[in-house]
Nucleic acid binder design. Sequence first.
DNA 1: CGCCTTCGTGTAGAATCTACACTAAGAGGA
DNA 2: TCCTCTTAGTGTAGATTCTACACGAAGGCG
Lengths: 229, 229
Amino acid sequence: MTSTYEFPRPALTVDCVVFGLDEPDLKVLFIRRDLEPYRGKWALPGGFVHVEESLEDAAKRELREETGLEKVFLEQLYTYGDVDRDPRERVVTVAYYALVRLSDHRVVAATDARDAAWFGVHDVPRLAFDHDRILKAGYHRLQNKLRYEPVGFELLPRKFTLRQLQRLYEIILDRSLDKRNFRKKILGMDVLEELDEVETDVAHRAARLYRFNQKRYREMVKQGVNFEI
Amino acid sequence: MTSTYEFPRPALTVDCVVFGLDEPDLKVLFIRRDLEPYRGKWALPGGFVHVEESLEDAAKRELREETGLEKVFLEQLYTYGDVDRDPRERVVTVAYYALVRLSDHRVVAATDARDAAWFGVHDVPRLAFDHDRILKAGYHRLQNKLRYEPVGFELLPRKFTLRQLQRLYEIILDRSLDKRNFRKKILGMDVLEELDEVETDVAHRAARLYRFNQKRYREMVKQGVNFEI
DNA sequence: CGCCTTCGTGTAGAATCTACACTAAGAGGA
DNA sequence: TCCTCTTAGTGTAGATTCTACACGAAGGCG
């Protein structure tokens, strides 16, 4: 079954920059290509947009098919449309970035016959197409996002300690933060719920666990509260 | 001449949200559609992406063809890909927003047979497709952008007074700013060149003219300087 | 020359940011 | 049981930045 159009059309794909926190590293997920071009090279998970699915649906579907990931935080990043991005033909790619809780999704690589693997964000192999550029944009966006919105919770277990959260910020923003100031700031945002639980299995005083209160956050966003770190 | 593909492909278009400052209003440019669907309705300037041109080139070309505008500030906004955006068929639209110096481009509407017109951003007619949504996103983006980056100069004449600049900020951000604090802040950024000229044709003391020093700005961005207002 | 309008400037008090160090809790081993 | 080790959890002073606010100077115009 084929489709015919009066004028030639670019192919349309989605690609996802998938971040996961694997302390002490921020990791990104790639799949190994099993087709030409760039066969055997690592690439961002992604693929063609079907004509009856939205862009976001396409991104979700590709993530599920290629990496087994579901229900992750997903946001549009940028659309890449230079004419020579793909050696075969004109391809326009809508890039998304995703944040996944590795605590929930341990076994990603195994879910599919395809070869998937996490790489440290500062230690990425040569990538197919212009995917290094997309990766860079995704990382940059994550850093900016984190600076202005409390989005990091998507990378942590649902219950976490303030120390874990601070480490996350330090890893992503790539600079160290003062413990007391960080706690003041983040608690002052008033979007964390203090739980009646502490962490377990640590060989020292256990830290209190917190949970992100998304409902409260959304209310505060409406009121125009600032979440800058 | 037709093109045939194995699978159906969405059509790909670009649309531009074009802002211009026409004191005391921020205006947006629309064209009146002369084809179905939405014939006679106002719509964002835009059109199909040719297969041999980049997305940005397509946006520039459409702007030129439909509105006569050239060499304007142009930046990608968001890509809209819901399946039912267009009643005819699946259309994916990469939206851009543009800032134009009305002082340089007075006669936009006349350049083409097509019907083009500026509307106050708070006083826009019913628009074709989901263009009201795109407009909203563009306006929102402009506000955010202005808040964090000195981008407003693109809307002013190359030489301008601090008062003009402040008015611009007030119009776009939709709140009044303190004169002295604004001047301190903006001059403290160190990206304005004080000229040896003052405004003319005013019936009161003439204000000094300034010019935006883009080179200096770029250097400062590299150093990670903050341009928040 | 007087009037009118806008230009251009400083400061004090409030709020926020930054840098910094010690006691408390709990686990583990002697 | 007690000593040691590690991290938890907390407050403050000084510097910086933000905010609110008013008046003399310049220059065109009648």
